[in-house]
Design a protein around this nucleic acid. Structure first.
Length: 759
DNA sequence: CGTAATGAAATTTTT
DNA sequence: TTTCATTACG
């Protein structure tokens, strides 16, 4: 993307940049220079004399916030007073100022998902409810969904007949109560509390609305209802909300994001100016056309005319492989070849997959060929057990009411304080309405606790008190003390396990972080700030752009990035539209967007692939090509079949002949008949031997089938209706399958289903 | 109280 | 196949 701050802006870009008052919606296609527009707009606002402290720009990730800050700074120099942060950070700050109004203390603790889950388990156990029917995870997910949808604990009611909702209706209020008692909030609360604050205190809302006169939001398509409510509240009297986003890149619906927010923007904010950024600066024409062709199949979207002045580029490739190993191996070989001929460097390549489990085979192949790679994994540093343990000590020091932290560390490392003692302490705490720490303090007074045990508990409390005494010094000092006095350090040092040495190293790293923090906060006493800081930092963002490595990541992780050459593997039913989305039309659209996002990451070359067989969950399965493949411009893509025969692989090229776009039969008979036969036979043999698991076959309306319609069959995969015949009661259909040739069915008893049914 | 053994389940993860 | 969670045992 162009980075020259003084580069010319297109008409559309200028419209957006120079817009000042009133709502603004920037529909930004992939690679359209969105960040550039946003940063230029900030600069423009400031140049127009608007005070930076009246501007707030919100992003979802720290990375995006940092990038935006860097680029805005490049235009304006350091900007004093400008609020530029993530939603969560922004809310945390606001919450701190108004904590008492929400029943919190100012030094509230932020629980990450692991902490919240512990809290939830704690509540479930204490109440002794529904532990069998639903997993804590399921319940946590439902609570999270509710919070994202702006439904508080008191408003949650269970629609009858939904057992999960019934369970949650019982647990949610208790969970929330416990959070408040612990002076803690979960991630969702950060938003929900602020939304509540703004709706229940009109005077505060009005004040903040006036203060944050210009609000900019990035990735608006990813906002949930809580964020939406906050934005609305801040844009009531001064509706200068500028939203940037792209409905086609909404891939976090399952996390509560609501595409409806961006689709509704024009109704929500009258007199809105809508700017479409449709010019793409990233990809070749071939790649962009492929992406556009696919995404047109979505209903929930706003049409954009994507175009680019970039070169045509090589055709997009679609590779068929015999199995996952073959796929991984071929990709590794291609990469190796290009690196060796010095046409490309390793960092030019990225490999995307739908689920992490698919990385394994690829990693293996890359390692085998000595290709350096980096894996972008979701959970990182701050999720590690040892790091969380040490942080829990700090959390408890900062917030003595933090029961989750106490439960985590009271017996870590082992102090002989076991489950029984803990239960007693918990009961005592509940009876006396005390935090667990206070309950522990009184352990000696509780009869049912043995003397020896009580002494152990007392020793823990004494240690804690000592930590609190020392908490005034530097963070590094305190952390060092915690690690050594608690025995955590000693335990690891004594261990000879490789794993424990790694843990030790991680703790060292944590100490380094503390040291750095101390340097930035020379006044000391920065414990609260430190905890807040690390709670809102996901992983350490240790993806190195510079490093000479092939990048492996999930499609979700790929959003916002770009690479010269992209491989997108396992375009197979059940994996790319993931099996769990089969029944839900909206979720299916999201899967399509996911592929769209993946495709549009590619700058120069794109290679999609699928395997005929895939080893998955220890089982060898026959695959069905992704239905999305039929929604690509297959006619202009290069398809290549590669199949291993007795260890030796040979490849057969054939470009697919072109006809009438969508009406064209996308599955012409392969030119190589021997090949086709052998595949078919093999497919049949294996599929009759062991049928892949299928959802129950239900009756379908035979009248919904039309000639030309795309259908899917559990055994034969994707196909198209070539002809219909017979009376309605015994209607037959002739189907041309993508990989299994021509077959005839009696529709009534067939498991054939239309694909992408909407007109 | 801590560990070994068994069995069910199995995306995606900005904070 | 791997991973987790619950349970049974030492």
């Amino acid at each position: 993307m162009p980075s020259d701050p003084h580069a010319e802006l297109t008409t559309a870009q200028r419209l957006a940049v120079e817009h000042i008052d009133g709502p603004l919606l920037i529909l930004a296609g992939p690679g359209s220079g969105k960040t550039r527009v946003v940063t230029h707009r900030i600069a423009h606002l400031v140049h127009q004399g608007i005070a930076p402290h009246q501007i707030v720009a919100l992003t979802f990730t720290n990375k995006a916030a940092d990038e935006m800050r860097d680029r805005a700074t490049a235009l304006l120099g350091p900007i004093d007073g400008l609020q530029l942060s993530t939603f969560h950070r922004f809310c945390a700050r606001m919450l701190r100022q108004h904590a008492p109004l929400l029943g919190l203390t100012e030094n509230f603790t932020i629980y990450d998902t692991d902490d919240s889950l512990r809290m939830l388990r704690h509540v479930l156990e204490k109440q002794g409810i529904s532990s069998n029917t639903f997993s804590p995870r399921q319940i946590a997910a439902e609570i999270s969904r509710a919070k994202n949808d702006l439904i508080g604990a008191t408003q949650y009611c269970s629609p009858h007949g939904m057992p999960l909702a019934t369970a949650v209706a019982e647990v949610y209020p208790l969970y929330q109560q416990q959070l408040l008692a612990a002076a803690a909030v979960d991630f969702d609360d950060l938003l929900l509390h602020v939304a509540t604050l703004l709706s229940e205190h009109p005077e505060i809302r009005a004040e903040l609305d006036a203060r944050y006169r210009y609000v900019l939001v990035d990735e608006y398509q990813d906002t949930n209802m809580a964020q939406y409510a906050i934005l609305r509240a801040l844009s009531h009297d001064h509706p200068n909300l500028a939203a940037t986003g792209d409905p086609d890149q909404s891939i976090f619906g399952w996390r509560g994001a609501n595409v409806g927010n961006i689709l509704r923007f024009e109704e929500d904010f009258p007199n809105v100016r809508v700017v479409r950024l449709e010019q793409n600066y990233r990809s070749t024409k071939a790649i962009l056309r492929t992406a556009d062709h696919l995404i047109r199949h979505n209903q929930l979207r706003k049409h954009k005319k994507l175009f680019t002045h970039n070169p045509e580029g090589n055709p997009v490739q679609l590779m068929h492989y015999a199995d996952g190993r073959d796929e991984a191996d071929s990709i590794a070989l291609s990469i190796l070849e290009e690196i060796k001929s010095e046409q490309r460097k390793a960092s030019d390549f990225a490999i995307f997959y739908r689920i992490n489990a698919l990385s394994r085979s690829i990693e293996f192949a890359l390692r085998e060929h000595g290709i350096p790679y980096q894996l972008i994994k979701g959970l990182e540093f701050f999720q590690r057990k040892e790091v969380k343990d040490v942080i829990a000590y700090l959390q408890l020091i900062s917030n003595p009411r933090d029961d989750v932290a106490l439960l985590r560390i009271i017996n870590t490392p082992r102090r002989g304080i076991g489950k029984k003692t803990l239960t007693t302490l918990i009961n005592h705490a509940r009876l006396q309405s005390l935090p667990l720490l206070e309950s522990a303090r009184q352990a000696g007074l509780i009869e049912s606790i043995a003397k020896a045990t009580a002494t152990r508990v007392a020793r823990f409390v004494a240690m804690y008190d000592r930590f609190v005494q020392e908490a005034t010094g530097s963070l590094e000092e305190l952390m060092g003390l915690v690690i050594s006095v608690s025995g955590y350090h000693g335990n690891l040092v004594d261990s000879e396990l490789e794993e424990d040495q790694q843990r030790l190293a991680n703790i060292e790293e944590l100490l380094t972080l503390a040291r750095q923090f101390d340097q930035q906060h020379p006044e000391g006493g920065a414990l609260d700030q430190f905890l807040q800081e690390i709670a809102l930092v996901g992983d350490t963002d240790d993806w190195e752009e510079e490093t000479e490595r092939v990048t492996l990541m999930t499609l979700h992780a790929a959003k916002g990035l770009e690479f010269p050459i992209v491989f997108l593997v396992a375009c197979e039913e059940g994996l790319l539209p993931h099996e769990r989305t089969r029944t839900d039309a909206d979720a299916l659209e999201e899967e399509r967007r996911l592929l769209f996002v993946g495709i549009t990451r590619a700058e120069q070359e794109l290679r999609l692939s699928l395997a005929r067989r895939r080893d998955f969950r220890g089982q060898r399965m026959l695959t069905i090509p992704s239905q999305f493949l039929l929604q690509l411009p297959c006619d202009e893509m290069v398809q290549q079949e590669s199949f291993a025969l007795g260890g030796a692989a040979f490849e057969a090229d054939h470009a697919i002949e072109k006809g009438e776009d969508d009406q064209q039969d996308p599955t012409p008979q392969p030119t190589n008949s021997i090949t086709a036969d052998s595949i078919q036979t093999a497919t049949e043999m294996i599929s009759t031997a062991s049928d892949p698991p299928q959802t129950a076959v239900s009756q379908v309306d035979v009248n919904q089938f039309r000639v030309g319609m795309r259908v899917t069959h559990p055994k034969y995969g994707l196909g198209k209706v070539a002809a219909l015949g017979g009376p309605e009661s015994a209607r037959t259909a002739t189907i041309h399958f993508a990989t299994a040739g021509v077959r005839k069915f009696r529709l009534k008893e067939s498991p054939l289903r239309p694909v992408g049914a909407k007109p």
